[in-house]
Amino acid sequence: MIRRKLEESFFRVLMVLATIIVAGSFFLIVGTIFYKGMPFMNWDMVTKIPGGGFYIGKEGGVLNAIIGSLYVAGGATVLGLIISIPVAIYINMYMNGKNYVATGLRIAFDVLFGIPSIVYGAFGFFIMIYLGIRASLLGGILAVTLLVIPILVRTLDEVIQTVPKELRDAALSLGATRWEMSKVVLRQILPGIFTAILLSFGRAIGDVASVLFTAGFSDNIPTSLHQPAATLPLAIFFQLSSPIEEVQGRAYASALILTIVVLIITIFSSVLAKRFSKNKIQ
């Protein structure tokens, strides 16, 4: 009896410790980023482009990367939405949403979700060469769009499933076509669409491997789709390896900016998602 009680308390302590490590790792990471990034944060960082080259110049900030990231993530999310909304509607409204084909499609999108971004990057690069596009804002947006489509489809799919079946039936029984019914449902899930946008934007803004070969890098803010664009994650990645302290500082500050942006997005989306998701994709 004592042995069993001891075992119980032993594992209980172990579980608490494990939980502290898992939940604590979040604080450790965010803490490290804040500790290193705070000293380098100032107005120049978010309002100026790097002076004298991003790798050696000591002046300026990372405005080019901030704007570039917004362009890439925003563009990819918009393009992704245009593709994903019809797909989610088709799976649920036209295919009944419950049969084997629909299940198969869901698994396919889950699998697409699991494909690493470096593969999307390599494939995106392959397509770009095929289409004759050089590393540019457009290329980055295309590659990241591939990356966010599965996220958008699966999130929208989950959201649509939360709409009561009665609502659809009511629309149909009034003589609406399936397309008209879909419009009714779309209006119902507007907040859910917003969640999907946030999730996709959060993933898009933080990803490196997909933009590494496709978006290029530049010290300037891109003014057309065909110019190379810097992104925040790449700015962090490149500047961290610089031997110059100020440039490394820019990397730390960029990391801090990216972390704050992503945290805000995650918090927002999880507050919104709480109302919708039954089983989120991982």
Partner: peptide, 11 residues
């Protein structure tokens, strides 16, 4: 745990 999953790889 959710917040941790949102942090980008580069971070």
């Amino acid at each position: 745990v959710n917040l941790l999953s949102g942090i980008p790889p580069v971070i």
